[in-house]
Design a protein around this nucleic acid. Structure first.
Length: 824
DNA sequence: AGCACGCCGACT
DNA sequence: GTCGGCGTGCTC
């Protein structure tokens, strides 16, 4: 009999799969896509994922055995792993990195070392430190992590090790299941009460215990005991909550053998109680036309872009498409940027598709994520119980779909689809396209301001293109005007940060009881403070940035690492007491507008005021119900706010958008301004947008005013071609990081020298990025541009090789070098 | 990522 | 002479 071997991937940044032997008793349980517990290295246990089985014994390797098979059913399908492999290859990261990103936390396990005291140490000769540690370990068996936290500086690995050597403690690796099904106490009738007659008798017996009788009666009503459709049980919580009955009364009923309590597994996911599914809205003629065009386009093209202006009702078109795919028995994935996961769209989808919809995003607990994951899996075997539609943020591309038929990426231009920091640095929009290709599912990208890469693909025929140029409410697009703040400052016409144009429009709106939205891309009170006497500016001690002043908290905060300190009373440099705030953040604007609009109610929407989901919802609700007259916000206001009574939108400082040092600056500025503008629009009165700038003659502004997407696109394409940027050239960014500045400088230059050996690559840098030091780590970037005709895999392999060579040079091993493919 | 192994400076 | 620092490389 030949032995069985399993290839597994570990949740570690390792390139290769590892082979383990499957012991005989596990041969019938093991399967591809199941998780197994394996030992990797000296002691650590991990949950690894089986990707292949074979009977060939690997040569020259001392294989270890699999300890345990964790799953009864595979948690990942081979077609899902296919996408993982694609991602690892394309984004130059390891399969382990992708594995870590793909599986919900609850399905990833890692061993924790548990420490037991086995000897009180009286026999052995112990140092003072060892005795102290042994006492702390005591009789409880805590994990090493816990000990470390509890003892802080008193903890030391060497002491622990010597205790181990002296046989005073035992260390054991335990793998702990992070996912535990949630259970609740349920109550049902005692099995001895077989019919209504007995029940009635028992009820009569309780004449002298009125409360118990009442509770039993209440219980019977809850389970419909007197009607036809008798429910078997009711949860204790539902039975007692808000009734005034105490658990003690219930306990008496249990004691008298009238009811019994038991534990039952429940779902953590709150289901909408509404059972009645709302029917799908009818589309207007423009939407109908767009839908037909999309369907026709899908006949020919795998991917289609719908370019629909703000408030053109794209969501309803998506719902029609999803409905269609569900009827064909397939699954649909609906991706939205993280912030767009507001209740509005969740509610709409749940109303239409009911229990078929699952929501998946980063705010869910890892336990909740596991449950949603399971329900997507279930669709394969028990479609009626599983999720057929997933509405989610970028990580939803990893869900274990078995019969995917449609992928929708809404607001496809949003850069939050791209993951920045831990690898895999993937773009979920692009991976949605790959996912579609791999599953032969149609992909629909939607945006009012498509990314230029996508639009380029659409006009070149790689993607289908459908336009939707009418707003569904028949509201016209707003009128846009440019306000010259430089001139207004000179003439002393400014009302605080408001140009006379914007001020007047806002006054007019206030008189008509209409709302205004102001956009300023800086949170806090002022982006920096400065000593009036000597010009000293407080900087973060961990990062190369000035500290932002937050007036409400009276603190200076770093927006990169979170470092925060008290606002100083005097200058650290010269001792002067005059420290002035400089520049405007949303908080300061709110402050300054209060006296200008004394009768208006102001609200602010930024990371500080909308940290929690409920806080954000409250702000949106207040705007919806018109409790808020003027909303001041950052990026956040560009998304998902469609309000009928917003008539004025102000972009307070367009300069920093236009002058941002990035090849995509104009694209971004245009998208942002158009998106914010899209919030304006009254039924009977055209909305107004004011763009405040000190360079009113900037060529981009004229194009923005005319809302001329294609002209901006064409102009930008010329520039991108000339300067060899995407979509004409491929772009890879390499970031070298180290705590020591000299090391970064040296390693970056060494890396460049390796890269220069390929003369087909165009290299920029190494240069310090905008913020050269974050969290005590210095960084330098090298940008690589290369022609699309170059062999992609070979070029990437060459780059990976250069990185690895650089890391192996002396003293570079502690350098972190990240490869970012298609950076944003 | 962890963890062991190995090679150099400050202590008994 | 050893203890322990970190730099280097391997883990099925």
């Amino acid at each position: 009999m030949s032995d069985l071997y399993a290839e597994v991937i570990l949740p570690l940044p390792l390139h290769d799969a590892f082979t383990y032997q499957v012991p005989g008793h596990l041969e019938s349980d093991i399967a591809e896509g199941k998780r197994v517990v394996v030992q990797f290295g000296q002691k650590k246990l991990y949950s690894a994922l089986v990707t292949a089985l074979s009977s060939k014994k690997p040569e020259n390797i001392d294989v270890k055995k699999i300890y345990e098979v964790l799953d009864e059913q595979p948690v990942v399908l081979s077609k899902n792993i296919k996408l993982w492999r694609w991602i690892a290859k394309y984004y130059c990261c390891t399969l382990g990195d992708v594995f870590k990103a793909a599986l919900p936390g609850g399905l990833k396990l890692e061993s924790k070392s548990k420490v037991f005291a086995v000897d009180d140490g009286t026999e052995a000769e112990l140092t003072e430190k060892e005795q102290l540690l042994l006492q702390q370990i005591g009789s409880e068996n805590s994990t090493v992590d816990e000990l470390q936290k509890k003892l802080r500086n008193d903890f030391s690995y060497p002491v622990l090790k010597s205790l181990f050597k002296k046989n005073c403690i035992q260390i054991e690796e335990k793998i702990n299941a992070r996912y535990k099904p949630k259970t609740e106490t349920f109550v049902k009738l005692h099995p001895e009460i077989e019919n209504k007659k007995i029940l009635n008798n028992k009820l009569n017996d309780l004449q002298r215990a009125k409360k118990q009788q009442a509770l039993l009666l209440h219980f019977c009503e809850k389970i419909n005991a007197f009607k036809k459709d008798v429910l078997l049980s009711v949860s204790k919580k539902e039975l007692l909550d808000g009734t005034g009955f105490t658990p003690a009364i219930l306990k008496e009923l249990v004691k008298k053998k009238l009811v019994i309590q038991f534990q039952k597994q429940v779902s953590r996911i709150e289901e909408e109680t509404e059972n009645s599914q709302v029917s799908i809205n009818l589309l207007n003629k423009h939407q109908e036309k767009a839908l037909t065009e999309i369907q026709a386009s899908f006949e020919k093209k795998q991917v289609t872009l719908i370019h629909g202006i703000t408030a053109s009702g794209k969501t309803e078109i998506y719902i029609h498409l999803i409905d269609e795919i569900l009827k064909s028995g397939k699954q649909a994935l609906y991706l939205v940027p993280e912030i767009a996961l507001t209740t509005q769209i969740v509610r709409r989808l749940k109303n239409v598709f009911g229990k078929k919809v699952g929501i998946y995003h980063s705010k869910l607990s890892s336990q909740e994520r596991v449950e949603i994951w399971d329900k997507v899996l279930q669709f394969q075997t028990k479609p009626e119980n599983g999720y057929q539609v997933i509405l989610g943020a970028r990580s939803a591309i990893f869900m274990p779909f078995s019969k995917l038929g449609l992928v929708i990426v809404d607001e496809e231009h949003e850069n939050s689809f791209k993951q920045f920091d831990p690898a895999p640095r993937y773009n979920a929009r692009d991976m949605a396209v790959i996912l579609g290709l791999q599953n032969n599912a149609k992909v629909l990208l939607g945006s009012a301001t498509p990314s230029f890469e996508t639009y380029y693909n659409a006009v070149n025929g790689k993607y289908g293109l459908v336009n939707l140029k009418k707003r569904h409410t028949n509201v016209e697009l707003p009128e846009t005007l440019v306000a010259d703040v430089k001139k207004a400052y000179k003439r002393r016409q400014m009302h605080s940060v408001l140009s006379p144009e914007l001020y007047e429009l806002m006054q007019g709106a206030a008189e008509k009881n209409e709302q205004s939205i102001l956009f300023q891309n800086r949170r806090g009170y002022s982006p920096f403070v400065e000593c009036f006497t000597c010009g000293w500016i407080p900087k973060c001690k961990n990062c190369d940035v000035s500290l932002t002043y937050h007036k409400y908290k009276k603190r200076l905060t770093c927006h990169y690492c979170g470092y925060s300190q008290q606002m100083p009373d005097s200058c650290d440099n010269c001792g002067s007491n005059e420290i002035k705030t400089r520049g405007f953040g949303t908080e300061k604007i709110e402050d300054e507008l209060k006296p200008l609009f004394p009768n208006a109610s102001l609200a602010r929407m930024d990371l500080d005021t909308a940290r929690s989901k409920t806080a954000l919802e409250k702000i949106i609700q207040n705007l919806e119900s018109r409790k808020t007259d003027i909303l001041i916000g950052t990026q956040m206001v560009t998304k998902g706010l469609d309000f009928e009574h917003v008539s004025v939108v102000g972009i307070l400082n367009a300069d920093n958008l236009l002058n941002f040092p990035d090849f995509r600056a104009h694209e971004r500025a245009f998208q942002l301004i158009l998106q914010v503008s899209g919030r304006a629009g009254r039924k009977n009165n055209r909305g107004k947008v004011v763009i405040q700038t000190s360079q009113p003659e900037h060529p981009l502004l004229n194009l923005i005013i005319s809302q001329d997407y294609t002209s901006v696109f064409k102009a930008q394409m010329e520039e991108r071609k000339l300067f060899r940027y995407p979509p004409f050239f491929r772009l890879i960014k390499i970031v070298v990081k180290h705590k020591n500045q000299q090391t970064v400088d040296r390693a970056a230059i060494q890396l460049k020298q390796f890269l220069e050996k390929n003369n087909k690559l165009i290299l920029l840098g190494p240069e310090y990025p905008l913020v050269s030091r974050i969290q005590l780590w210095y960084q330098k970037e090298i940008w690589i541009k290369f022609d699309k005709s170059l062999h992609l895999d070979n070029t990437k392999d060459f780059i990976i090789d250069c990185v690895s060579k650089t890391k192996h040079l002396p003293d570079n091993s502690n350098c972190v070098i990240n490869i970012d493919v298609d950076p944003m």
